[in-house]
Every structure is written in C-alpha cells, then in structure tokens.
Design a protein around this nucleic acid. Structure first.
Lengths: 249, 249
DNA sequence: ACAAAAGTGTTCCTTTTACACCCATGC
DNA sequence: GCATGGGTGTAAAAGGAACACTTTTGT
C-alpha cells in the first residue's frame, strides 16, 4: 500500500483519468470505491515534482490496469475554484484514510488535468485499487454512482471528447484485441456513438480508409458464417491519426 | 504597471495564450517583447488563488487586447519537467525586471495551461504590454523570433489544433468583423489551412450549412462587382459549434 | 470599353444510401 | 434444412470537383 508523499509533489495539481472499456455493447469506465465512504472516484493521483505530467498519467494507468503503451489523451484542465470539495477531504481525514496534515494540504485548492484512455476490456485482468480505495470496478457510463468532487463532470466531458475524436480518428484500435472482426469494430462505433449504422456501408467505408489488413483467419463459434479477422496497418493507422479521417476542405 | 503578487497565486501553474489574428493573407500571433532581454513571450500570467482558470485566461486576453467575450479555447497543458528555463528566469532577475525573491519562486517548476484565441485583427487597436514587457506585437506565424521557455512549441501546437478545429467548427466568425463577404471568409480558410479552395464550391458548401444570413448590403470599393455582406446566424452558429460540421457517421 | 472579381449555373463523377442476394456455420 | 448473421453487389440519390458564363464595379 503506497502512501502519499505530499512534500514531493507538484503543488495544487492532480491528475484524473477516465478509462473507457467496452463490455459487450456497454461502454464502461473504471472507477474506484473509496474506503469507508460511500463515494467513488476516478483513478488519478498527484504529479511527482520530478516527472512530466504525461508520464505521471501513464504511470497511474499502469498502476491501475497493468496496461502500458495505451491510447492516452490529455483532454481538459478543470480549474474551477471550489472543484475539490472540502467536505470530501474532511471525510477522508475523519475516516483516517489520510492524516490530518495531509487533509490540510488536500483541502487547499487543486486543479486537475484530465486524461482519457480507451482500453481493451479483456486485457485488464484485475484492476488494482490505490491507497485510498478498497476496490476498482468497471461501471456502465449510464449508471454512475455518487462520485467525489467534479468527477461526474469530468467523465461527461471525456465522453463528449471521445465521441468527437472517434469521428476523426480510428480509435477503435485501442478498444479491441489485435485481431478483430468487422462486426466487432462496428459495435465499437455503434456503442460509443449510440447510433445504428448499416452493416454493409460501414464495412465499405471502413475498408476505404485503407488502414485495415484482412488476415486469412476467421472467427468461428457463432452459428453463422465465420467473419474475417482484421488487424490494423500500424503505418497507415498512425498516418490516419495525424491527418484525421474526415475534413471539410 | 501591475506588479506580481506571487503569494496570492495558485502555485506552479501559469497560463499562456496564443492569440491568432488575420492580417490580409497572413496569419499572425500576438507576442510580447520582454524588457531588456532579446526574447519574446506569449501573453500570459498566473492564476489568482481565488479565480477559476478559465476566468483568468479571459482576463489576460482582455488586459492585452481590450477584447471581451472572444473565442477562447483551452487546448493543452504543457507539463515537461524543465519547460521553464532557469536561465530565462535568472536573466529576468539580473535585469531587475523581477526581484530576487520572485525569481526564486519562478525558477521552481511551473506547468502551463494554454489557450488559443482567434480575434478580429482590426478590433485590437493597440495591444498592451504587461509588467515584464516593453511592447506587444503581431508577428507572422512563419517569422517567429526567439521565444522564452517552450513558447515556440506552444504556438506550434495551437496552430495544429486551430487547423483541426477549423475543419470541425465555423471558427471564421471570430476572425472577422460582424459583417463580412464570402471572399473574406474564404480567405480565412485558405490562409489558415494554407490551401486554395475553389471560389464557387466554397460558397455553395458554406451556404449549405445554413449558418449565414445574407444582408442587403454590399461592400463597395473594389473595382469589380460589390460582394454581398453576410453575418452569422447566432442561433444556428452555436448549434453547429456543438455538433460539428462534419462527421464520419 | 476593359479588367477584375463576384454571383449563378451546369456537367461529370464519386460517394452515400438503402436495399436485395448469396454464403457459411451450428443446431 | 433452417435460422442466423457475414460477405458481395447494385440502383438511385446526393454531394463534390471542375469549369463556363453572366453581372457589376472602378478606371
């Protein structure tokens, strides 16, 4: 159980991560159940004085999910004056999750820089809680429990940005295993965008981007024709991420 | 001349603003010439402990440009460990622009949250320098002088985001006077995207978004047919900003 | 009258949309 | 063999690209 080392952190700045995963046709986010308190929180933490902010975000994700090199996007700094609620901090101290001295520090004003990540649900075996939480859970985006501070707002913004980015960049990559079928990829889009897409048109358009490679394997098991397994063309995928898939002019 | 009040600011956090303006067919950014030092800086400052970050960014823009209610978008937190160069700070102290005690504080690690703004060049009469700078100037994006810290990198990122956003949202609004002609609007796109667009196709597509209202006025003066003046339809413009102009599905 | 540049229209071609049809797999 | 869902094809409509023509303004 790691403790806090508040003297070594960058002052007044925290990181919060919204980790998206797809469970069947449900979009879920990773949240932590706090100890002794009936509230939840986003995975996050503080920035070591000696580390880059982006590096620290990646570290936190690794600590919680075990995953490295994932799709991690900084998306917004939340900087309202009273965004970290003093009542929440006091609760922490009362429940002896943090010391009075630590509570003192955390009750000061904090701004938080938020990142979102999209991960392959299946690759995250057992998400690991941190010092302040008893367990970690995937929660459907539409069924969020009571969250501390402005974490609900952060998730809402993350989802909005995710939807926008999905229309611009082939994010599906990161939510799926290395090899996946066209219907699986389509499900990613339909779930996130909350919209039905014509099967055949989706297929054609997706293939036209020329970022997928058909393998000679198929996914058997369903009582129907076995769908072809695809993988992303790393090179072309990266290029598409830079330029974007659609543009006005 | 306002002084620094470092005891009242949020620690380790600064704001930097990239203000874009269009001068003819040149995209320019607003930069400040530092006193006694042969370097330039972005307009920016520190966050009062009692103010929201977004509010502070707007205040800085108002202080420098006199403009209120402008298009101001937070776009990235720069959080590398050594991004604020100690040598630059020392220079400040040596030149007595700031006190030794202030220099002490500023030499600590700072992360900066960046905003970009797009403004009507003509509306900014005389940009006002701050306590650290002797004057303020519009500089062509392609001819940037030596800038402190990572400000060059910040401008580069801002430009990249601006180009992306332009393809998504009708930003042109903010770079132009209330009433403008179709060729003027087209020039905004061509200048920012560095790309020629067919006059007639641009017109048709832009009108198809149904966010422009033709006035019954024209702009005279050119030795050619007087172009119609348009204005944005506030309502529909706002809606388009939310949904975006293009989408994959 | 002429140059310059704006407004309008047209043609061709590509993409999108909305389908019908066939194919493989498991029960 | 049949239900299920995947792969392929196609006709009609919409949208995009390229270009000709007309109109207005200042000199």
């Amino acid at each position: 159980m790691k403790a806090l080392h508040l003297e070594k952190i960058h002052p007044g700045l925290s990181i919060d991560c919204v980790v998206f995963g797809l469970h069947g046709d449900t979009l879920k986010v990773l949240i932590l159940k706090l100890k002794k308190i009936d509230k939840w929180a986003l995975p996050g933490g503080f920035v070591a004085a000696t580390e880059a902010v982006d590096t620290e975000a990646a570290r936190m994700l690794k600590d919680r999910t075990g995953l490295d090199h994932l799709f991690l996007q900084q998306f917004h700094l939340f900087g309202a004056v009273d965004r970290n609620k003093v009542s929440d901090i006091r609760n922490f101290v009362d429940q002896q999750i943090i010391s009075a001295a630590e509570g003192e520090v955390l009750a000061q004003r904090f701004v938080t820089i938020s990142y979102y990540a999209v991960v392959d649900y299946a690759k995250v075996q057992a998400p690991t809680p941190d010092y302040s939480s008893e367990f970690c859970e995937w929660c459907p985006l539409k069924e969020l429990p009571s969250l501390i501070h402005d974490h609900r707002e952060i998730i809402a913004k993350a989802y909005q940005v995710l939807k926008r980015d999905l229309n611009y960049q082939p994010i599906g990559y990161n939510l799926l295993p290395d090899k996946f079928t066209m219907p699986e990829l389509q499900a990613v889009y339909e779930t996130i965008l909350e919209k039905k897409i014509d099967r055949r048109n989706f297929r054609r358009k997706m293939l036209s981007f020329d970022i997928l490679i058909a393998t000679d394997e198929v996914r058997t098991g369903g009582s129907h024709k076995a769908p072809i397994l695809y993988k992303f063309d790393e090179q072309k995928y990266q290029a598409a991420m830079v330029g974007g898939l659609v543009s006005l002019w």
